[in-house]
Simulated assay, not measured.
Amino acid sequence: MRMKRRSLLTVASAATVMTLGGVGYAAHRRNANPYYSGPVSDHFDGKRFFLPGVNTDRGLKDVARWQAKRRRTAWPRSFPSPFPADRPPERVAGLRVVLIGHASYLVQVAGRNILIDPVFAKRASPVRFAGPKRVNPPGIAFGDLPPIDAVLITHNHYDHLDGPGLARIWQAHQPLVVAPLGNDVILRGYDDTMHVETRDWGESVDLGDGLSVHLTPANHWSARGLNDRRMALWCAFAILSPQGFHYHVGDTGLGDGAIFRDVRSRFGAPRLATLPIGAYEPRWFMQPQHVDPAEAVEIAGILGAQQALGHHWGTFQLTDEGVERPAEDLAAALAAAGVTPERFLALRPGQVWEG
Protein backbone atom coordinates (compact mmCIF):
# COMPACT_ATOMS: atom_id res chain seq x y z
CA MET A 1 0.00 0.00 0.00
CA ARG A 2 2.83 2.40 0.74
CA MET A 3 4.32 1.94 -2.72
CA LYS A 4 0.92 2.32 -4.36
CA ARG A 5 0.27 5.55 -2.47
CA ARG A 6 3.68 6.90 -3.44
CA SER A 7 2.97 6.05 -7.07
CA LEU A 8 -0.36 7.88 -6.98
CA LEU A 9 1.26 10.91 -5.37
CA THR A 10 3.91 10.91 -8.09
CA VAL A 11 1.21 10.89 -10.77
CA ALA A 12 -0.60 13.74 -9.02
CA SER A 13 2.62 15.77 -8.73
CA ALA A 14 3.40 15.18 -12.40
CA ALA A 15 -0.09 16.33 -13.37
CA THR A 16 0.39 19.50 -11.29
CA VAL A 17 3.64 20.26 -13.11
CA MET A 18 1.89 19.60 -16.43
CA THR A 19 -0.86 22.05 -15.43
CA LEU A 20 1.83 24.66 -14.94
CA GLY A 21 3.11 23.71 -18.35
CA GLY A 22 5.62 20.90 -18.08
CA VAL A 23 9.39 21.12 -18.01
CA GLY A 24 10.05 21.09 -21.69
CA TYR A 25 13.78 20.65 -22.09
CA ALA A 26 13.67 17.44 -24.11
CA ALA A 27 12.25 19.55 -26.93
CA HIS A 28 15.60 21.27 -27.43
CA ARG A 29 16.66 18.10 -29.24
CA ARG A 30 13.80 18.42 -31.72
CA ASN A 31 13.81 20.62 -34.80
CA ALA A 32 10.11 21.21 -35.46
CA ASN A 33 7.57 23.45 -33.79
CA PRO A 34 4.25 21.56 -34.05
CA TYR A 35 2.11 24.69 -33.64
CA TYR A 36 3.64 27.60 -35.53
CA SER A 37 6.03 28.14 -38.42
CA GLY A 38 6.18 31.90 -38.98
CA PRO A 39 9.08 34.26 -39.64
CA VAL A 40 11.78 35.02 -37.08
CA SER A 41 11.05 38.15 -35.05
CA ASP A 42 12.34 39.99 -31.99
CA HIS A 43 10.47 37.44 -29.82
CA PHE A 44 10.47 34.29 -31.99
CA ASP A 45 13.69 32.52 -32.92
CA GLY A 46 12.17 30.27 -35.56
CA LYS A 47 11.22 27.60 -33.05
CA ARG A 48 10.39 29.18 -29.68
CA PHE A 49 8.81 32.39 -28.47
CA PHE A 50 10.50 34.48 -25.80
CA LEU A 51 10.28 37.87 -24.12
CA PRO A 52 13.60 39.67 -24.67
CA GLY A 53 15.60 39.95 -21.47
CA VAL A 54 13.22 37.72 -19.49
CA ASN A 55 13.88 34.08 -18.52
CA THR A 56 11.01 32.15 -16.93
CA ASP A 57 12.36 28.67 -17.71
CA ARG A 58 12.77 26.13 -14.95
CA GLY A 59 14.63 22.86 -15.48
CA LEU A 60 14.18 19.33 -14.26
CA LYS A 61 16.55 19.95 -11.36
CA ASP A 62 14.47 22.94 -10.24
CA VAL A 63 11.25 20.94 -10.40
CA ALA A 64 12.86 18.06 -8.50
CA ARG A 65 14.13 20.45 -5.82
CA TRP A 66 10.68 21.99 -5.43
CA GLN A 67 8.94 18.63 -5.20
CA ALA A 68 11.51 17.20 -2.78
CA LYS A 69 11.44 20.17 -0.39
CA ARG A 70 7.79 21.20 -0.66
CA ARG A 71 6.15 22.80 2.35
CA ARG A 72 2.68 22.52 0.94
CA THR A 73 -0.18 23.86 3.00
CA ALA A 74 -3.07 21.42 2.66
CA TRP A 75 -6.25 22.75 1.09
CA PRO A 76 -9.73 21.70 2.19
CA ARG A 77 -11.58 19.34 -0.13
CA SER A 78 -14.27 21.96 -0.45
CA PHE A 79 -13.90 25.75 -0.35
CA PRO A 80 -17.35 26.98 -1.36
CA SER A 81 -17.82 30.53 -2.49
CA PRO A 82 -19.96 32.77 -0.27
CA PHE A 83 -21.64 33.98 -3.49
CA PRO A 84 -24.36 31.94 -5.18
CA ALA A 85 -23.81 30.84 -8.76
CA ASP A 86 -24.58 33.79 -11.00
CA ARG A 87 -27.34 33.74 -13.60
CA PRO A 88 -26.22 36.57 -15.85
CA PRO A 89 -28.57 38.64 -17.97
CA GLU A 90 -28.58 37.96 -21.70
CA ARG A 91 -26.93 41.29 -22.59
CA VAL A 92 -25.55 44.29 -20.72
CA ALA A 93 -25.17 47.80 -22.11
CA GLY A 94 -22.50 48.77 -19.56
CA LEU A 95 -19.78 46.60 -17.98
CA ARG A 96 -20.46 43.52 -15.87
CA VAL A 97 -17.73 41.06 -14.84
CA VAL A 98 -18.21 37.70 -13.10
CA LEU A 99 -15.54 35.29 -11.89
CA ILE A 100 -16.38 31.76 -12.96
CA GLY A 101 -13.43 30.40 -10.99
CA HIS A 102 -9.62 30.46 -10.92
CA ALA A 103 -8.79 32.61 -13.98
CA SER A 104 -12.09 32.19 -15.87
CA TYR A 105 -14.32 35.21 -16.39
CA LEU A 106 -17.50 36.23 -18.12
CA VAL A 107 -17.19 39.84 -19.26
CA GLN A 108 -20.39 41.47 -20.46
CA VAL A 109 -19.67 44.80 -22.09
CA ALA A 110 -21.42 47.07 -24.59
CA GLY A 111 -23.93 44.36 -25.53
CA ARG A 112 -21.28 41.66 -26.11
CA ASN A 113 -20.54 38.56 -24.02
CA ILE A 114 -16.90 37.48 -23.72
CA LEU A 115 -15.43 34.49 -21.91
CA ILE A 116 -11.79 34.66 -20.84
CA ASP A 117 -9.85 31.42 -20.25
CA PRO A 118 -13.02 29.41 -19.52
CA VAL A 119 -12.33 26.25 -17.51
CA PHE A 120 -15.36 24.19 -16.45
CA ALA A 121 -13.42 20.95 -15.93
CA LYS A 122 -13.26 19.21 -12.55
CA ARG A 123 -9.47 19.09 -12.80
CA ALA A 124 -6.97 21.50 -14.33
CA SER A 125 -4.93 18.64 -15.73
CA PRO A 126 -4.07 16.72 -18.88
CA VAL A 127 -5.61 13.61 -17.25
CA ARG A 128 -8.99 13.08 -15.60
CA PHE A 129 -7.80 10.95 -12.69
CA ALA A 130 -5.04 13.13 -11.19
CA GLY A 131 -3.85 16.68 -10.87
CA PRO A 132 -5.36 19.81 -9.31
CA LYS A 133 -9.03 19.28 -8.52
CA ARG A 134 -11.43 22.18 -8.17
CA VAL A 135 -12.67 22.83 -4.66
CA ASN A 136 -15.72 24.86 -5.65
CA PRO A 137 -18.17 24.62 -8.54
CA PRO A 138 -18.07 27.16 -11.38
CA GLY A 139 -19.52 30.53 -10.46
CA ILE A 140 -21.80 30.24 -13.50
CA ALA A 141 -23.27 26.89 -14.47
CA PHE A 142 -22.52 26.01 -18.08
CA GLY A 143 -26.21 25.92 -18.92
CA ASP A 144 -26.71 29.43 -17.51
CA LEU A 145 -24.18 31.08 -19.81
CA PRO A 146 -25.68 33.82 -21.98
CA PRO A 147 -25.02 33.76 -25.73
CA ILE A 148 -21.22 33.90 -26.06
CA ASP A 149 -19.84 36.13 -28.81
CA ALA A 150 -16.10 35.72 -28.21
CA VAL A 151 -13.64 33.66 -26.18
CA LEU A 152 -10.19 35.02 -25.30
CA ILE A 153 -7.38 32.58 -24.48
CA THR A 154 -4.27 33.97 -22.81
CA HIS A 155 -2.11 30.82 -23.03
CA ASN A 156 -2.20 27.06 -23.23
CA HIS A 157 -1.56 25.86 -19.66
CA TYR A 158 -4.29 23.47 -18.51
CA ASP A 159 -5.69 25.84 -15.89
CA HIS A 160 -6.36 28.36 -18.69
CA LEU A 161 -7.05 26.27 -21.79
CA ASP A 162 -9.65 23.55 -21.16
CA GLY A 163 -9.83 21.89 -24.56
CA PRO A 164 -12.94 19.74 -24.06
CA GLY A 165 -14.73 22.65 -22.38
CA LEU A 166 -13.85 24.98 -25.25
CA ALA A 167 -15.14 22.46 -27.77
CA ARG A 168 -18.39 22.34 -25.81
CA ILE A 169 -18.62 26.15 -25.78
CA TRP A 170 -17.95 26.24 -29.51
CA GLN A 171 -20.65 23.68 -30.24
CA ALA A 172 -23.19 25.52 -28.07
CA HIS A 173 -22.44 29.14 -29.02
CA GLN A 174 -20.19 29.31 -32.13
CA PRO A 175 -18.15 32.23 -30.73
CA LEU A 176 -15.11 33.82 -32.27
CA VAL A 177 -12.06 32.48 -30.42
CA VAL A 178 -9.05 34.80 -30.11
CA ALA A 179 -5.70 33.37 -29.05
CA PRO A 180 -1.96 34.04 -29.41
CA LEU A 181 0.01 32.54 -32.28
CA GLY A 182 0.13 28.75 -32.46
CA ASN A 183 -2.80 28.06 -30.17
CA ASP A 184 -5.19 27.53 -33.09
CA VAL A 185 -3.55 24.15 -33.79
CA ILE A 186 -4.12 23.10 -30.17
CA LEU A 187 -7.72 24.32 -30.11
CA ARG A 188 -8.67 22.71 -33.41
CA GLY A 189 -7.34 19.44 -32.03
CA TYR A 190 -10.48 19.44 -29.85
CA ASP A 191 -12.85 20.54 -32.64
CA ASP A 192 -11.52 21.08 -36.14
CA THR A 193 -14.45 23.35 -37.03
CA MET A 194 -13.61 25.92 -34.34
CA HIS A 195 -13.16 29.49 -35.62
CA VAL A 196 -9.88 30.69 -34.12
CA GLU A 197 -8.21 34.02 -34.89
CA THR A 198 -4.56 34.05 -33.78
CA ARG A 199 -2.52 37.20 -33.37
CA ASP A 200 0.96 38.26 -32.33
CA TRP A 201 1.86 40.72 -29.59
CA GLY A 202 0.98 44.20 -30.78
CA GLU A 203 -1.84 42.96 -33.02
CA SER A 204 -5.59 43.12 -32.48
CA VAL A 205 -8.98 41.73 -33.45
CA ASP A 206 -11.97 43.98 -34.13
CA LEU A 207 -15.10 42.55 -32.51
CA GLY A 208 -17.38 45.25 -33.97
CA ASP A 209 -19.50 48.01 -32.44
CA GLY A 210 -16.43 49.82 -31.09
CA LEU A 211 -15.06 46.74 -29.29
CA SER A 212 -11.56 45.42 -29.96
CA VAL A 213 -9.00 43.21 -28.21
CA HIS A 214 -5.26 43.82 -28.39
CA LEU A 215 -2.61 41.24 -27.48
CA THR A 216 0.24 42.43 -25.26
CA PRO A 217 3.20 40.59 -23.66
CA ALA A 218 3.19 38.87 -20.28
CA ASN A 219 6.13 37.61 -18.24
CA HIS A 220 5.11 34.00 -18.64
CA TRP A 221 5.48 31.05 -21.03
CA SER A 222 3.56 28.16 -22.56
CA ALA A 223 3.50 24.36 -22.83
CA ARG A 224 0.96 21.56 -23.02
CA GLY A 225 3.45 18.78 -22.35
CA LEU A 226 7.08 17.96 -21.73
CA ASN A 227 8.39 18.77 -25.20
CA ASP A 228 6.73 22.00 -26.35
CA ARG A 229 7.85 24.77 -24.00
CA ARG A 230 7.34 28.23 -25.51
CA MET A 231 6.30 26.84 -28.91
CA ALA A 232 2.93 28.63 -28.75
CA LEU A 233 2.70 32.30 -27.82
CA TRP A 234 1.09 33.62 -24.61
CA CYS A 235 -0.35 37.08 -23.92
CA ALA A 236 -2.35 39.53 -21.87
CA PHE A 237 -5.33 41.36 -23.37
CA ALA A 238 -6.24 45.02 -23.66
CA ILE A 239 -10.00 45.11 -24.21
CA LEU A 240 -11.18 48.44 -25.62
CA SER A 241 -14.88 49.26 -25.68
CA PRO A 242 -17.26 52.21 -25.35
CA GLN A 243 -17.12 51.45 -21.59
CA GLY A 244 -13.38 52.12 -21.42
CA PHE A 245 -10.15 50.12 -21.27
CA HIS A 246 -10.10 46.77 -19.47
CA TYR A 247 -6.65 45.17 -19.05
CA HIS A 248 -6.62 41.44 -18.37
CA VAL A 249 -3.63 39.30 -17.38
CA GLY A 250 -4.00 35.54 -17.07
CA ASP A 251 -0.55 34.81 -15.65
CA THR A 252 2.56 36.94 -15.33
CA GLY A 253 5.61 37.76 -13.30
CA LEU A 254 6.36 41.35 -12.39
CA GLY A 255 9.81 41.49 -13.99
CA ASP A 256 11.09 45.06 -14.18
CA GLY A 257 7.57 46.40 -14.75
CA ALA A 258 8.35 47.50 -18.31
CA ILE A 259 5.49 45.62 -19.97
CA PHE A 260 2.97 47.31 -17.67
CA ARG A 261 4.44 50.75 -18.22
CA ASP A 262 4.20 50.10 -21.95
CA VAL A 263 0.52 49.17 -21.62
CA ARG A 264 -0.25 52.40 -19.79
CA SER A 265 1.73 54.41 -22.33
CA ARG A 266 -0.13 52.83 -25.23
CA PHE A 267 -3.69 52.59 -23.89
CA GLY A 268 -3.80 54.92 -20.89
CA ALA A 269 -4.81 54.03 -17.33
CA PRO A 270 -7.35 51.18 -17.38
CA ARG A 271 -10.81 51.58 -15.98
CA LEU A 272 -10.49 47.95 -14.86
CA ALA A 273 -7.50 45.62 -14.41
CA THR A 274 -8.09 41.91 -13.78
CA LEU A 275 -4.86 40.53 -12.34
CA PRO A 276 -3.61 37.21 -10.89
CA ILE A 277 -2.91 37.08 -7.14
CA GLY A 278 -2.33 33.36 -6.47
CA ALA A 279 -0.03 30.39 -7.21
CA TYR A 280 3.11 32.14 -5.96
CA GLU A 281 4.87 29.89 -3.43
CA PRO A 282 7.72 29.04 -3.21
CA ARG A 283 8.97 32.41 -4.44
CA TRP A 284 12.38 31.14 -5.60
CA PHE A 285 10.56 28.95 -8.13
CA MET A 286 7.47 31.00 -9.01
CA GLN A 287 8.64 34.61 -9.02
CA PRO A 288 9.59 34.93 -12.72
CA GLN A 289 6.22 33.58 -13.87
CA HIS A 290 3.61 34.28 -11.14
CA VAL A 291 3.18 37.50 -9.16
CA ASP A 292 2.36 37.47 -5.48
CA PRO A 293 -0.33 39.82 -4.11
CA ALA A 294 2.13 42.59 -3.24
CA GLU A 295 3.46 42.53 -6.80
CA ALA A 296 -0.10 42.56 -8.16
CA VAL A 297 -0.75 45.72 -6.13
CA GLU A 298 2.44 47.19 -7.58
CA ILE A 299 1.24 46.39 -11.11
CA ALA A 300 -2.12 48.06 -10.44
CA GLY A 301 -0.20 51.13 -9.29
CA ILE A 302 2.03 51.16 -12.39
CA LEU A 303 -1.06 50.94 -14.57
CA GLY A 304 -2.94 53.59 -12.61
CA ALA A 305 -5.97 51.27 -12.66
CA GLN A 306 -9.19 52.77 -11.32
CA GLN A 307 -10.31 49.32 -10.15
CA ALA A 308 -8.55 45.96 -9.87
CA LEU A 309 -9.98 42.48 -9.45
CA GLY A 310 -7.88 39.50 -8.34
CA HIS A 311 -8.12 35.98 -9.73
CA HIS A 312 -5.98 32.79 -10.03
CA TRP A 313 -6.61 31.67 -6.47
CA GLY A 314 -8.97 29.58 -4.36
CA THR A 315 -10.14 27.03 -6.96
CA PHE A 316 -7.22 24.80 -8.02
CA GLN A 317 -4.18 24.23 -5.80
CA LEU A 318 -1.21 24.60 -8.11
CA THR A 319 1.45 25.72 -5.64
CA ASP A 320 2.26 25.64 -1.94
CA GLU A 321 0.36 28.50 -0.27
CA GLY A 322 -2.85 27.88 1.63
CA VAL A 323 -6.23 28.43 0.04
CA GLU A 324 -6.92 31.74 1.83
CA ARG A 325 -3.37 33.12 1.80
CA PRO A 326 -3.71 35.16 -1.43
CA ALA A 327 -6.67 37.13 -0.06
CA GLU A 328 -4.91 37.64 3.27
CA ASP A 329 -1.67 38.74 1.60
CA LEU A 330 -3.59 41.04 -0.74
CA ALA A 331 -5.25 42.76 2.23
CA ALA A 332 -1.85 43.25 3.87
CA ALA A 333 -0.30 44.58 0.64
CA LEU A 334 -3.13 47.06 0.12
CA ALA A 335 -2.81 48.32 3.68
CA ALA A 336 0.96 48.71 3.27
CA ALA A 337 0.44 50.66 0.05
CA GLY A 338 -2.27 52.85 1.53
CA VAL A 339 -4.88 51.59 -0.95
CA THR A 340 -8.46 51.07 0.20
CA PRO A 341 -9.61 47.41 0.03
CA GLU A 342 -12.47 48.27 -2.34
CA ARG A 343 -9.97 49.29 -5.04
CA PHE A 344 -8.62 45.75 -5.41
CA LEU A 345 -10.99 42.87 -4.68
CA ALA A 346 -9.99 39.22 -4.38
CA LEU A 347 -12.92 37.74 -6.29
CA ARG A 348 -14.68 34.47 -5.42
CA PRO A 349 -16.62 32.32 -7.92
CA GLY A 350 -20.00 33.82 -8.71
CA GLN A 351 -19.01 37.28 -7.46
CA VAL A 352 -20.18 40.10 -9.73
CA TRP A 353 -18.50 43.45 -10.29
CA GLU A 354 -20.34 46.15 -12.21
CA GLY A 355 -18.85 49.47 -13.18
Rank of each mutant, 00 (worst) to 15 (best):
A110W: 15
V63L: 04
S241E: 08
N219P: 01
G255P: 08
V196M: 08
A141L: 12
A346L: 00
E203D: 15
T340V: 14
L207Q: 12
A305H: 02
G278K: 08
I169R: 06
R261V: 11
P132D: 11
Y280D: 05
G22P: 00
F44K: 04
G250T: 11
D149L: 13
R230S: 13
D192N: 04
D117C: 01
A335Y: 12
S212C: 14
E203K: 03
E295D: 09
T154V: 14
S78F: 08
E321L: 00
I277D: 02
D57W: 15
F237L: 04
V196P: 01
E197R: 08
K69T: 00
G253E: 01
S37V: 03
G310F: 05
K4Q: 15
R128P: 15
L152D: 10
H246D: 07
R58M: 13
H246A: 02
E328S: 12
I186P: 03
P89I: 15
N33C: 06
M3W: 01
K4I: 15
P89W: 09
V17D: 01
Q287N: 11
A68W: 07
D191M: 06
G301L: 15
A27R: 04
A74I: 06
A93K: 10
L95K: 12
L330A: 07
G210V: 13
G165Y: 10
R266D: 05
T56P: 01
V11L: 10
Y247S: 00
G244E: 09
V109W: 15
L309T: 03
S104V: 00
P288G: 09
R58W: 11
Y158W: 15
D144N: 11
H173S: 15
L187Q: 12
F142Y: 14
P326S: 06
P146G: 09
V92S: 13
W234P: 00
Y105K: 09
A294C: 04
G59S: 10
A305Y: 02
H246P: 03
P164F: 05
A85E: 10
A179F: 03
A103W: 01
G268S: 02
R30Q: 10
G139V: 06
D159S: 04
H43I: 03
T216H: 12
P276T: 03
F142W: 07
S204Y: 02
R325I: 08
N136A: 14
P52N: 11
R6C: 12
P242W: 13
G310Y: 10
Q289L: 09
W170H: 13
P326G: 10
A26E: 11
A85V: 02
R264A: 07
P147A: 14
V40F: 13
V92L: 07
G59R: 08
A300N: 02
R325M: 01
D206L: 02
L334V: 13
Y247M: 02
S81Y: 05
V323R: 07
A332F: 06
Y280L: 01
A93Q: 06
P88E: 13
H220R: 06
I302H: 08
V178H: 02
L152G: 04
V17T: 03
A15D: 02
G253I: 00
M18N: 07
D262W: 09
R71A: 10
E324M: 07
D191Q: 05
F267Q: 00
P138D: 14
V40L: 14
E203F: 07
E197P: 05
L60N: 14
V54N: 00
A141D: 13
N113F: 14
I140R: 13
D86H: 11
D251R: 03
P293E: 12
L240E: 10
Q307V: 08
G255T: 05
G244H: 02
T216S: 10
